[in-house]
Computed example of a mutant assay.
Amino acid sequence: MLHHALGRWPEDLGFTVPVDWIRPEALQGDDDVNRRQFVSATAAALVTGPTASQHVDPALIDYFEQQLEGHYRADMFLGPHDLIGTVSAQYQLIDKLVRSAKGEVRRGLLRAGAAYAALVGWLYQDAGDLAAATFWRGVTQEIAVRSRDPHLIGYSLVNQAHVRTDLGDGRGVIDLCEAALDGTDGLFPKLRIMAMQQQAHGASLIGDRSAVDQLIDTAAGLLTRVDDDLPWGNACRRTPGYLEVQRATCYGRLGLGREAEALWAQVLDDVPSTARRDRGVYLARRATVAAASRQPDHAVEIARSAVEIALETRSARMLRELGSLERAMGPWHDAPVGRDLAEILAPVTEGS
Rank of each mutant, 00 (worst) to 15 (best):
M1D: 12
H3Q: 13
E11R: 11
D12C: 04
F15I: 01
T16P: 06
I22Q: 12
R23G: 13
P24N: 14
E25H: 08
G29M: 12
G29D: 08
G29A: 09
D30L: 02
D31Y: 08
D32N: 09
A43K: 11
L46E: 12
P50H: 00
A59P: 04
A59C: 04
L60V: 13
Y63W: 11
Y63L: 14
Q66E: 14
Q67G: 01
L68Q: 06
G79R: 06
D82N: 13
Q90A: 02
D95Q: 14
R106I: 08
L109R: 14
L109P: 13
R111D: 01
Y124A: 03
D126L: 10
D129H: 07
W136Q: 04
W136D: 05
V145T: 12
R146K: 11
S147P: 01
S147R: 08
Q160R: 14
H162N: 08
T165K: 05
D166L: 09
L167F: 04
G170W: 07
G172M: 03
V173D: 07
E178V: 07
G186C: 07
K190V: 15
Q197V: 13
Q199I: 00
A203Y: 11
L205M: 13
D208F: 01
Q214E: 13
D217N: 14
T218D: 12
T218V: 03
G221Y: 04
L222T: 03
R225F: 04
V226D: 00
D228L: 04
L230W: 13
W232R: 09
N234R: 13
A235G: 10
R238N: 10
T239L: 00
P240S: 02
P240N: 02
L243C: 09
V245N: 09
Q246H: 14
Y251E: 12
L254W: 11
L256H: 01
A260S: 02
Q266N: 14
Q266M: 14
V271M: 11
V271G: 05
Y282R: 15
R286I: 02
V300M: 01
I302E: 00
I302A: 04
A303E: 10
R304L: 14
A306K: 01
V307Q: 09
V307N: 09
R314N: 06
R320E: 03
L322Y: 09
S324W: 11
R327I: 10
M329H: 06
H333K: 11
A335N: 00
A335K: 05
P336R: 05
V337M: 00
V337P: 00
G338M: 08
G338F: 06
R339D: 12
P347W: 05
V348P: 10
